[in-house]
Design a protein around this nucleic acid. Structure first.
Length: 267
DNA sequence: AGTACCACCTGACGGC
DNA sequence: TGCCGTCAGGTGGTAC
């Protein structure tokens, strides 16, 4: 049982990693820690990290947006961001070590936990508490936790492209490029549409779409092939056609990110 | 203050 | 055949 990083790690993928970590890696004594890529660490050097973890145990997990936090005994928390190619793998035989392993934790029971990340966009760090981490990184409310009231409050104060807003982690945390496309496709709004042009009913529709997409993704364990067939995510590539109206999907660039949308279904 | 955009990173892919 | 440019995307820093 391990997780490959089938999609870019957005909220549902990271929630999946959290549950996996919870099932595999809690309450086991840590024998040693190997930092294989120094650029993978942030806010802490390899020797401090080794001192902090060795002879200790992970005690609980937490997630906010795309960030996984793991408490180190009764001490600070390890913070994990998966970038765009990151994932974790727990295994018993070192021959199963994944490629691009950046941080390796060896437990006293003989098992291993690897933090793999081909492109090294991910980061592992340390923080005193989840609240402190959220504050330091100016993260908005978690997209899985946010309720309609708070969502409407936040939107009423913004005048930006819907696509940009959904991906802004300081606005709301957890949605990235791929899921924002899906949310807008299912709600029927163009990615470049300005948030200030939505009336209250349209905002509620957008909110429902955020929830629907996240919950569908969680149910599918963020594995694309398990998504419903009418999901844009399953077919998000150049030249593909809309499942609903058969129009050729179009693309637009937003700050270096490519948005896919249907010119027929989205307004 | 709020918003927009680029550098970072690596591998796959297409064109010539 | 092989080289080179382009694309993929989350985040933090910088520029406006």
């Amino acid at each position: 049982m391990w997780i490959t990083g089938d999609t870019m790690p957005e909220l549902p993928d990271v929630e999946n990693f959290r549950l996996y970590f919870q099932k595999t890696s809690l309450n086991q004594k840590i024998n040693s820690v190997q930092v294989k890529e120094l650029r993978f660490l942030t806010e802490i050097d390899q020797f401090s990290l080794q001192r902090l973890l060795t002879e200790n145990r992970f005690s609980e997990t937490f997630r906010h947006g795309k960030n996984l936090l793991v408490r180190i005994g009764t001490d600070p928390w390890l913070t994990v961001h998966f970038g765009m190619t990151g994932y974790i793998k727990y295994y018993s035989d070192i021959s199963q070590e994944p490629p691009f392993d950046r941080l390796l934790i060896n437990f006293s029971n003989g098992n291993h936990l690897s933090f793999s990340d081909q492109r090294i966009f991910g980061r592992v760090g340390v923080t005193s508490s989840p609240e402190q981490f959220i504050k330091e990184h100016h993260l908005g409310p978690d997209a899985l936790q946010i309720d309609e009231k708070r969502f409407l409050e936040l939107f009423s104060r913004k005048k930006r492209a819907l696509k940009t807003l959904l991906m802004d982690q300081t606005f709301m945390a957890g949605i990235g490029n791929e899921y924002s496309d899906e949310i807008l496709f299912r709600a029927g709004f163009l990615p470049g549409r300005n948030s200030s042009t939505l009336d209250i009913e349209e905002l509620k529709k957008l909110f429902r779409s955020v929830k629907e997409v996240i919950h569908t993704a969680l149910k599918a364990h963020a594995v694309k092939k398990l998504f419903p067939d009418d999901y844009l995510l399953k077919n998000r590539r150049k030249g593909s056609r809309c499942f609903r109206c058969n129009a050729v999907m179009q693309t637009l660039r937003f700050g270096g990110r490519t948005a896919y949308y249907c010119p027929g279904c989205q307004r």
